[in-house]
Lab assay of single mutants.
Amino acid sequence: IRCIGVSNRDFVEGMSGGTWVDVVLEHGGCVTVMAQDKPTVDIELVTTTVSNMAEVRSYCYEASISDMASDSRCPTQGEAYLDKQSDTQYVCKRTLVDRGWGNGCGLFGKGSLVTCAKFTCSKKMTGKSIQPENLEYRIMLSVHGSQHSGMIVNDTGYETDENRAKVEVTPNSPRAEATLGGFGSLGLDCEPRTGLDFSDLYYLTMNNKHWLVHKEWFHDIPLPWHAGADTGTPHWNNKEALVEFKDAHAKRQTVVVLGSQEGAVHTALAGALEAEMDGAKGKLFSGHLKCRLKMDKLRLKGVSYSLCTAAFTFTKVPAETLHGTVTVEVQYAGTDGPCKIPVQMAVDMQTLTPVGRLITANPVITESTENSKMMLELDPPFGDSYIVIGVGDKKITHHWHRSGSTIGKAFEATVRGAKRMAVLGDTAWDFGSVGGVFNSLGKGIHQIFGAAFKSLFGGMSWFSQILIGTLLVWLGLNTKNGSISLTCLALGGVMIFLSTAVSA
């Protein structure tokens, strides 16, 4: 259960009878995928790494000078000259100064003066180019299975845990398959586009800190620079940016070097996208990844198990997540596992009318040892309800109150669905055939309105939902006002479609 501690969480529900669903994975976010007769899966884009970055340009932001020398000439005696002028490691300046009897010249006039100092770069920052084909995306998957609280967001041991898996995709191999043991396998067909235009970005490294910066900004930095990788004795261009020549006297000129420019660069980098280094690879934390999940090989585990009949206890007080759902960790005293956990939410304890829904599909106890633990997640209705676990006299209950409203949740879900469709863009549509167009249209309606429909009408039977949709269509056909007619027709059509397409 990876997503319960992530604030940016998206719930995606598969269409009834569908074998695939489109998701948008982004750094700092987590996606929970639910479908009829399929286990619930949490998917998170953990890291995006980039390798084989080529150094484009380096800037010196802290330097020192040494070996200063000057040469001067009297008027009419030609130009002052130093051998160091031809050495690229030196920074030199030529000027004219007033000369006369007082400073060793027989004539009054302008004399030539040249001053040089050896330039040494102490600290530099480097910009590297990123090729999209060198990106690698690491995705962690977790099935809502027989897990306890100690396994949440624990990325170790996934090789031997059938509840978890790690997959890596690249532009050259965008397809992967996550093996989930008894739950089958989940196929991923990803489109490795981060949403960032790397043709316009460089990877900047300064003092063990890293950013993504725009090329134009990078090339306009007014500091000494050299092109390409460091060859040991780089040729620094624009050395004068960190060196200041003071007022010249008759035979000498003082040279000083400016202080470190790291603070000024940090100020200019305010708002830039931060990154990290992992050995020789860069780690990015921006952008998104679009994936199509193929769920035809994914299956529920323990459908044929019998119900657990022994007593359950709450190991922890049920807690609310950031998303309005409830996490419950229970301990089973029996030894008759594997068995299914009898769990439901009810409005009252007399009729036990089921409300809400299970995020953890078909929760089971897989071990036959005593005191096995299991964590599950529920989506309670707004208002008061009861969490009921167990059967008969051994069942345990917990009162729950959820604040908020169904309308607010439906609106929030619609906005999130619209954002998801905007990110998917043209990849969500198939114009290759008439059937493809209608299929894409259905998927689009489901992406945007599916979660809201589930919130508003999830407790009704599909037949009642179709009746309401048919009534809206009838009202649309018999209303003389054009805008009201079109609105009723659209709402009725969407409702009829979703009542037959969205899983219960």
Rank of each mutant, 00 (worst) to 15 (best):
I4Q: 09
G5T: 01
G5P: 00
E13P: 01
W20E: 05
W20D: 05
C30S: 11
V31P: 00
V31C: 04
V33T: 04
D37I: 02
K38S: 01
P39T: 02
P39L: 11
L45R: 02
S51F: 08
E55A: 13
R57K: 13
C60S: 04
E62W: 09
D67H: 12
A69D: 00
S70R: 01
S70F: 07
R73H: 12
T76F: 05
S86P: 14
Q89F: 07
Y90R: 08
Y90K: 10
Y90A: 08
C92L: 03
C92N: 09
C92W: 13
R94H: 06
N103K: 08
C105P: 04
K110N: 09
G111I: 03
A117K: 08
M125I: 14
T126Q: 11
K128F: 06
S129E: 11
P132Y: 14
E133Q: 10
N134I: 13
Y137T: 02
R138V: 15
I139A: 02
S146T: 13
Q147K: 13
H148M: 03
S149Q: 14
G150L: 11
N154H: 13
D155G: 11
T160D: 15
N163Q: 12
R164Q: 01
V169T: 03
V169W: 07
P171V: 03
P171I: 05
S173L: 12
S173H: 05
P174A: 06
R175I: 05
A176G: 15
E177V: 06
G182R: 05
R193Q: 10
G195K: 05
L204S: 03
N207C: 05
N208G: 07
K209H: 05
V213F: 08
F218I: 12
H219Y: 11
P222W: 11
L223I: 11
P234G: 13
W236K: 05
N237A: 00
E240Q: 02
E240A: 09
L242K: 04
V243G: 00
F245V: 03
F245G: 01
K251E: 15
Q253H: 03
G259S: 03
S260P: 10
G263Y: 09
L273W: 07
E274S: 10
A275F: 02
M277P: 04
R292N: 02
L293W: 04
K297N: 12
V303P: 00
A310C: 13
A310S: 14
F312E: 08
T313K: 01
P318E: 04
T321K: 08
H323N: 05
G324N: 11
V326T: 04
T327V: 01
V330Q: 06
Y332D: 10
A333T: 14
G337V: 01
I341T: 11
P342L: 10
P342T: 04
V347T: 11
L358R: 10
I359D: 07
P363R: 01
I365Q: 05
I365R: 00
T366L: 07
E367W: 05
S368W: 15
T369Y: 03
T369F: 09
N371S: 14
K373R: 15
M374I: 11
M375N: 02
E377D: 08
E377L: 01
P381T: 06
Y386I: 15
V388D: 01
I389A: 09
G390W: 08
V391S: 00
K395N: 03
T397K: 02
W400S: 07
S403R: 06
S403L: 13
S403P: 00
G404F: 11
F411A: 05
A413S: 14
R420G: 09
V423P: 01
G425Y: 09
A428D: 08
D430H: 12
G435R: 14
G436M: 10
F438R: 00
F438I: 15
S440Y: 10
G442E: 08
K443S: 14
I448T: 07
F449A: 05
A452Q: 12
F453G: 01
S455T: 14
G458E: 13
W462L: 11
L467A: 12
T470M: 13
L475S: 08
L477R: 01
K480G: 13
N481H: 12
G482C: 14
T487N: 05
L489A: 13
L489K: 01
V494G: 00
M495Y: 07
I496L: 15
